[in-house]
Structures are given as C-alpha cells and as structure tokens.
Design a protein around this nucleic acid. Structure first.
Lengths: 236, 236
DNA sequence: CGGAAATTGGATAGGGCATTCCGGTTTGCT
DNA sequence: AGCAAACCGGAATGCCCTATCCAATTTCCG
C-alpha cells in the first residue's frame, strides 16, 4: 500500500543531480548502517557513536561525515525497521479473525521491541524532522486504527480501548525490557499478556481517561531530544 | 509486624562512641538530604550530584564528604521512603476487603512512583550493600505476600498471580512515567488500571511463566550499578 | 578570647560523550 | 602513470559527569 522507493542514495532533492559517491564511501556507509543496526539493537539508542564506529571498523570522523548528527544515523537505521512495523498491520489486517489479528499485532510489535532495544526506544519517540520515518509510523497508526475498529465491531475488544493505549503499552514494555535486560529476557511476554487479556470484553470496570493525543505526542517529541546531547532548556 | 525504631536522628549507632558532629556539619547534612529529596524526586536518580549541591546551597566537596558516593546519598535519601512503602502494606492489610486492600496497595505504590521519580527508579533496583533499605523492602515484600494470599483466598485474585508480577508492573509503570513525564502526568493511572483489572478473577486465559526470582533480582542488581559512573564491564 | 581540629567550597583530576579539525591516503578520470 | 578531488581516521574540542585536593573558614573547648 505504501510506496517503497529505491534507496534514494544521496537523498538530494527531486530530479536534480545526485552526485555519485565514491565506491569506498558507499561501502563504508553500508558498513556503518549495519554496525549501527547491531549496536543500537543490542544496547539501545544511548550506545555511543564511538562504539558504532568501532563495530563498523571505520574512524569516528568517517561516521560523522556520513551522518552529521547521531539523530540522522538513528533515523537512517530505523526507517526501514519502521517499514516492517507498518507492514505488520497489513499482515494483521489479513487475519480473518479480528481479535486474533489485533492481539497478534500487539504481540508482534512488542516482540520487535524485545528483539531490538533501539527500536523499542524509537517507538516511544517522535522525530518531527524525519519525514519518511514518521510517514511510516503514520501508516502503521492508520492500520492500527482499522484493527481497533474491526476488533471492536467483532465484540471482543473493549469499547473504551483507544490507540493511545498501544502507545502506553509500548512505553510500559520498553520499561520492562530495559529493566530486565538479559537477566529476564522473556519477562515482557507476561506483561503484554496481562494487558491483552484486559483489553478483551467484557469490560471489568471503568478506566481513567487516556492522555490526550497531543500530550502523548509532546512526550514522544521530548524523549527524542535525549538522543543528541544538549538539553535545550535550562531551568532558572 | 516489623520493628520501627526511632528515627535515629544523627545516625549515631548504639552504645559505642559516635563522634559528635559539629553543628554546621549536621545542619548541612540535613540540607543535603532535603535537597536530594527534591532533586531526585523531580529528575530521577540520574540527577547530578552538582545539582543536588546547588539546591542544597553547599559546595560539591561538602556533599561528597557527607556521602562519599552517589549511591550512599541515594540510599540515605530513600531509606525512609522505603519505610513508607513498607507501611503501605500494613495499611492495606488493615482493609477488611482483601481485594480492595490488594488493589489499593498497588495503586498506592504506583502513585508513590509517580510522585517521586527517584523512588520509581529505586523500586526497580536492588542495593545489596544497603542493609536497612533492603530490610524495608523485604518487609514490604512479606506484607505483599500476605496481601496476595488473602486476595486469592477471597477468590478475587487470579491464582496464577505472583509477587514477581508486582515487580514487573513497577518496571512497566516506571517506563510509562519516564516516557510521559510532565507531558501526560496521569497516563500511568490508566496503565495500572488495565493491569489490575487483568489480575481479577476469573482468569481469561493462560499466561507465560513469570521470570524466576533470581532473574529479577539479578536485573535489579544490575540496574543499580547505573547510579555510579563507571560501567564495570568492558566487552571485548 | 585563642588556637587546633573539624569543616567548608572552589578548583581540579579523570573519564565518557557528541562533534570538529586536519594531514595523510585512496579513488577515478585522463 | 599522474593528478585533483574526494575521502579517510586519529587527535583534539568542549561539555557534563563522579570524585578528590587543598587553602581558607568556622566551630568548639579551655
């Protein structure tokens, strides 16, 4: 449903001359992205740029020439993982059982978080400058809305479930994952199972209102600022 | 059920010669702890020692003379909050309705996390060297076991709930709190409500096994090492 | 009061971090 | 080959962190 363009090499604007990179440059770029995938996946987004360069076998300066800020590297690495995230909704929507599709999707997404600690961070952050990444997130969001709608229509999902509850679950799961780490690598499954069972009808009681969309967005936007160093505000 | 000794003011141990501190020293110690309570409560455990000193209006060296490591300051600050944590079980056990006591306790504890971001961190960490703090945690744990037992006996708590599920919930809640922050300060209530409703009988399905006690303890022990600076392991 | 010991706080060490500089190397084109 | 442009990587910068040092000050006791 969503167009997947070529790697779009330089990323220069439409039509104009994309200056062809030298072969070693392109090779190193690939190595860097692969290394970053490994390191961020293992250590989360606060892995250092130096560790990525070491893993890639390139100098630090090389890394920064290809990706002038850490955020740009993060975005480059996780844009296509976000693609998989968006595709997971397609797969879930293909499930003939709406409830099974809905719960399977949630489990898949949480499993992605467990398998990639960097991605776990990404899912609770927003990068307003990264158009394609955010576009994929929006795709996924839309798909999830449809999943919700179908699951509610089938009568198996509580009527008071909202898309914000997925965000909250992702935040909760991220907390469990980073707290347990390698010591209890499957603990998250139990938490997610508790939550999913609670989403199921019949409702067992009222719930506090979910946060506003704008509030969640604001929280995710703030979180993304932790990736780069300088915290922009200085209280007092 | 657990002995509550006097506040032990200066911290002078029983009987032996506790060298009397100078008046200004004692005063500064109080200021430091109060400041640390404020700063850690607002910013979490990764607030810097310098910010604590600034808030207390003392020099950095003064802070470090009173508390030679950051961990010692953290322990000193949160030992009596852990006291309140332990007392919360007493209050919950006094509730005539076992289920209400059980759920009220969980909500109270999560509310403590929300009110004090440092305490939220503490509850998912273990400090083997801090005897009294860990003793309080053990008190609370014992009380919670009793809460579980009564709630199960009353038939309202799922039989497959275990004390580890509280730890997982605390980790999840911590994740929600740090992700939402000031932007959505009540979002945690909804997550906790989802979880509590899921704990209620009748069970809606099987759950993955909870992590082993030892695994959770290991995770909490590792987490506490993040408080001091140098990560002790050097991979490869 | 007076002076020694206890206490203070600014300056400093030492390490990690993201990011930049710059001299040397490699590539690609002729 | 030969040469310029592109590219490389280690060293260096600047910031923040925990923790230590030392000269100046404060308390306390006779």
């Amino acid at each position: 449903m969503h167009s997947r363009d070529q790697h779009a090499d330089g990323g220069s604007t439409a039509g104009s001359a994309a200056p062809p990179k030298r072969s070693d440059a392109e090779r190193n770029r690939g190595r860097i992205i692969a290394a970053a995938r490994t390191v961020f996946g293992r250590d989360g987004l606060n892995a250092s740029m130096a560790s990525v360069a070491r893993e890639a076998g390139v100098g630090i300066a090389t890394l920064f020439r290809h990706f002038p800020t850490k955020e740009e590297l993060v975005v480059a690495v996780f844009t296509d993982r976000m693609e998989a995230y968006a595709q997971a909704t397609d797969q879930a929507l293909a499930d003939p059982d709406p409830w099974h599709g809905f719960t399977g999707y949630i489990q898949d997404v949480c499993a992605m978080q467990a398998a990639d600690r960097g991605f776990a961070d990404i899912l609770t952050m927003s990068f307003p400058g990264a158009q394609t990444l955010e576009a994929r997130r929006a795709d996924a969001y839309e798909g999830f809305l449809e999943l919700i709608s179908r699951a509610k229509d089938s009568g198996q999902l509580r009527a008071d479930f909202t898309s914000r509850d997925l965000v909250l679950l992702l935040m909760a799961n991220s907390g469990v994952l980073s707290a347990t780490g390698d010591a209890a690598p499957d603990a998250w499954r139990r938490v997610v199972a508790w939550m999913i069972q609670s989403f199921q009808t019949p409702a067992r009681g009222p719930l506090p209102d979910p946060p506003q969309d704008a509030a969640l967005y604001e929280a995710m936007r703030r979180a993304s600022h932790v990736v780069s160093s300088p915290e922009p505000d200085k209280r007092r």
